[in-house]
């Protein structure tokens, strides 16, 4: 009668309504949902990263699965001896004979392992300085990777994109668009030029730039509203689905139960409501 799917639907409905209940005011349902969300997210990410990255890509390269009949030297035996110790502690992550993910042994991966351990040492105040090495590596690598991409796509690509021909086989609409784009780009950039005081003709140009920026912020706000409404539609669609007979009217029952319980809770917490005024901002 109650399959995993139905139980899942009831949990989903409860959590959705619990989050929505914050629109009324901060309450125990919302707090429960909030804490579950934070806990589950942290656990999910930690588990996902371990099983998709650390186990296959790090351990899989440090202790790859041994082929049948493969012989090991003394160092190899010591190395796999360490692995066998981990195997005794937690076999699912360290299966017998090595991690079979198709990698060969690459001991260079000891460096990220050491850097990772150094980052974890940040929890101990005495050794927290070790973490800087790992962070420095990550920051340096990310900066190197992104700098080329930004220069190529966001600087050169965008400059090229803003150069629009005004003559030849171009429609009137495209010419007008091109001129607006040119004015918007130049005035917008001028607004962010702070080495000259924004007065006189320079101030006027900067002011035009502000109008372009305001239009851009308005568009961003509009899109943000559209996005939030889309998400609301998604939740309501699910609530509608789970309100059907297939799910034993989960949405309806839980909504009624939560409204009644919130009403009772509100009745006994009137004072808190008046003093704190904890309605959503």
């Amino acid at each position: 009668m109650f399959s995993a799917e139905i139980v899942g639907a009831w949990i989903a409905v409860f959590l959705t309504l619990a989050i929505f209940s914050y629109l009324y005011r901060d309450n125990p349902f919302y707090k429960v949902a909030e804490h579950i969300f934070v806990g589950v997210s942290a656990g999910y990410w930690a588990s996902m990263f371990f099983w998709t990255q650390i186990q296959p890509n790090l351990f899989g390269r440090l202790w790859p699965a041994l082929h049948e009949g493969q012989s090991l030297g003394i160092l190899g035996k010591v190395w796999y001896g360490i692995y066998n110790f981990f195997n005794l502690i937690y076999p699912p992550a360290f299966p017998d004979g090595g991690v079979a993910t198709g990698h060969g042994m690459q001991l260079i991966y000891l460096i990220p392992l050491i850097l990772g351990i150094m980052m974890l040492l940040s929890v101990f105040s005495k050794f927290s300085w070790f973490a800087r090495w790992g962070i420095a590596y990550v920051v340096g690598m990310a900066a190197g990777l992104r700098s080329y991409g930004f220069l190529n796509s966001n600087v050169i690509g965008q400059v090229k994109g803003s150069i629009i021909p005004l003559v030849g086989d171009v429609s009137t609409g495209a010419i007008i668009n091109g001129i607006i784009l040119l004015i918007g780009t130049i005035t917008g950039l001028m607004y962010f030029y702070f080495s000259k005081e924004h007065k006189g003709w320079f101030g006027k140009i900067g002011r035009i730039g502000i109008y372009f920026l305001m239009i851009s912020f308005g568009a961003s706000f509009g899109f943000a509203v559209m996005g939030r409404i889309s998400l609301l539609i998604g939740r309501f669609t699910d609530l509608k689905t789970f309100g059907g007979a297939d799910y034993h009217h989960a949405s309806l029952w839980l909504l009624v139960a939560m409204v009644v319980l919130l009403g009772i809770w509100s009745f006994f917490n009137k004072e808190e409501k008046l003093t704190k005024g904890n309605t959503p901002k």
């Binding site: 992104r146 080329y148 991409g149 190529n152 796509s153 690509g157 803003s162 943000a224 996005g227």
Partner: peptide, 30 residues
């Protein structure tokens, strides 16, 4: 765009959340 489409020249299209449109639209226009 930055690391695959632009450096290699392989054509690319995208679908994004509403909130990202303003950020991505300049790449479309260019």
């Amino acid at each position: 765009v930055q690391l695959a489409a632009d450096p290699t020249g392989i054509p690319m299209s995208t679908g994004v959340t509403s909130i990202q449109v303003n950020e991505v639209m300049p790449y479309v226009d260019a």
